[in-house]
């Protein structure tokens, strides 16, 4: 696969096969360097009748907790009245920690753009999905700045290609261009190794969505 692209200038994209090896490499490396986030897990979605395409599926990292400081949690009056409890063996909990936000991140290969695409969503502990405004409040300042000023990374809501439900995504239309920029002149003729591609890509999109990528991922491997 290297040979198909190395003949002419590399266009910043990734072939389905390279995506696959990239995913495997990332999962392995992540286990070694990650010290706070959950693990990446590949969920295959085999295409019926097409065994050749093993890039169908998504790489998932779920249950990333975000402590939300600002939000006022409203405790509405229950429409039906609360359950009356008279049981000594049940621990009665104070209403805390409800302001926790949970994020799920999926990396999907886009066969149209030939690049990885990040899909993500956030929800409260009661299952209510977060709106874009809520998500933006969770993002660190540098992410917001990037989202406002860069024309390459911006969030939209689109159907998750495998779950068929609207998730937030960073639109992939600029990805191949900034990937070329990222690898600079030394990549003009040489396609980067698959793991390098996905790590470099993750460094940009991770920053955009406030995901702290372990530095170890970028130390010499």
């Amino acid at each position: 696969m290297q040979s198909e692209t190395s003949a002419r200038q590399w266009d910043g994209t990734l072939s389905p096969n390279d995506f696959n090896s990239s995913v495997a490499a990332l999962c392995e490396r992540w286990k070694e360097v990650n010290d706070s986030l959950p693990q990446w897990l590949w969920v295959p979605f085999p295409v019926v009748g097409d065994s050749s395409c093993n890039a169908a599926g998504y790489l998932t990292m779920e249950n990333v907790y975000h402590q939300n400081a600002s939000e006022e949690v409203s405790h509405e009056e229950s429409i039906l009245g609360d359950e009356e409890l008279s049981d000594d063996a049940t621990l009665v909990q104070s209403c805390g920690k409800d302001d926790m936000h949970v994020y799920d991140y999926h990396i999907v290969y886009s066969f149209n753009f030939r690049v990885p695409v990040l899909y993500f969503r956030g929800y409260r502990l009661d299952g209510c999905p977060l709106k874009l405004e809520d998500i933006e409040k969770d993002l660190p300042a540098y992410s917001l700045k990037g989202l406002r000023e860069s024309k390459w990374t911006f969030m939209t809501q689109e159907d998750h290609p495998y779950l068929r439900r609207p998730w937030y995504t960073l639109h992939p239309c600029g990805t191949s261009d900034w990937m070329k920029v990222l690898f600079g002149s030394n990549a003009a003729n040489n396609q980067p190794r698959p793991l390098h591609y996905l790590s470099a890509w993750l460094s940009v999109v991770g920053q955009a969505v406030g995901l702290r990528i372990p530095l170890g991922l970028y130390k010499s491997q």
Partner: peptide, 24 residues
Amino acid sequence: VGWEPKPKSINLAESMNPERLAVS
């Protein structure tokens, strides 16, 4: 025993209402 303390209600118009989806 075992009921959760209270019922929960969630609204998914944002992701299910075709009109809102068309707008976005």
